[in-house]
Design a protein around this nucleic acid. Sequence first.
DNA 1: CATTTATTATACCGTTCGGTATATCAGATG
DNA 2: CATCTGATATACCGAACGGTATAATAAATG
Lengths: 190, 190
Amino acid sequence: MENRMRIMECAKELFYAKGYDAVGVQEIVDRAGITKPTLYYYFGSKLGLLKTLLETKFEEPHAAVRAAAELKEDIRSVLYHMAKAYCDFFERDREFYMLMMALFYSARENEAYQAVKPYVTEFYETVVQAFERASGQLGNMYGRQRQFAIGFIGTLTHYLLLHSEADAGERLEEEKITSLVNQFMYGIFT
Amino acid sequence: MENRMRIMECAKELFYAKGYDAVGVQEIVDRAGITKPTLYYYFGSKLGLLKTLLETKFEEPHAAVRAAAELKEDIRSVLYHMAKAYCDFFERDREFYMLMMALFYSARENEAYQAVKPYVTEFYETVVQAFERASGQLGNMYGRQRQFAIGFIGTLTHYLLLHSEADAGERLEEEKITSLVNQFMYGIFT
DNA sequence: CATTTATTATACCGTTCGGTATATCAGATG
DNA sequence: CATCTGATATACCGAACGGTATAATAAATG
């Protein structure tokens, strides 16, 4: 059971750094200090390893975002809490977060994309629902809930992507999150 | 020379569909109806093929966005024209656009990411400069040019990503672009 | 103590990987 | 016609790929 976790951790690091397809099973087991049959004993296949990794690490952060999305507060507060939960997800395990994003943006026919898609879709629907619940506060949305959700997630994910690139190690400041949410809510003329 | 172009086209389709690492050179030459030495004659390596592909297909759309970014009009108009040029890029060759995005979101140590990074960075700086040029119109930006650029690009790219997923073939409506730009400029309370 | 069960390693499978040495072949050039 | 040059194919390279048959080991169980 200890090896099982070490394998997942090593796989995460390598998938993050080099990409799912570019990493060989041999490389993973070498880093973990075990041999191939051990990996196949626990996960059955390279893809099974990826799936287990996603399942294990996704649930908790997603629950946090969902909790924020379901808050019975005004939309400003909900958006802020969602953004906060999302950034916490990023902060808690940047490698896993970046790995998920890379997989989601990867080729549609690739098995790694197929594996991550349900998780990201579920997350995305959570945000759409938050906007639907806020219909009353936003005037007539004309069915723009999806568009808002896309803008919101797009702004956040893109910011985190470029933040992790530029300030590799630095903490994400609270006020930066507020500023992003404000920009999203009120636009750029403020 | 005809083979050269066919190889690039086939490579683009396969890289888009399955991912750079997941596609073998053999697969590319099979689809192009030629053999490996022909590919290596023109491009030297698999990575050389990718680099040539990016160089060949990036310049023109990027020039269009840069032209929009340098318009001497008010920021609303500049943003609209940039968004329009960007979406045209997407429309002209969705596969190539999606391939670029996938590469940019892929693992940092991966050679495919290294290959695409300079192009996306250049594009990104173009947008940052558009916001810098508009400083006078936006009040005090407090150095938020980068943040604005990130939000702008993030909203656009994310929208195109999910649009291409949902409405695979459908044309991108003009008014949708306007709506996105408005959302970005004025926020969601309108 | 004997047996079972979970876990791990040795050694190997056939296939595919990116890449190349060499030869051919067609068209242009002297 | 002879030669040269650009373009292409045949056939191959060693290495790495994902995956597995088999056996050993170690701890728990009867």
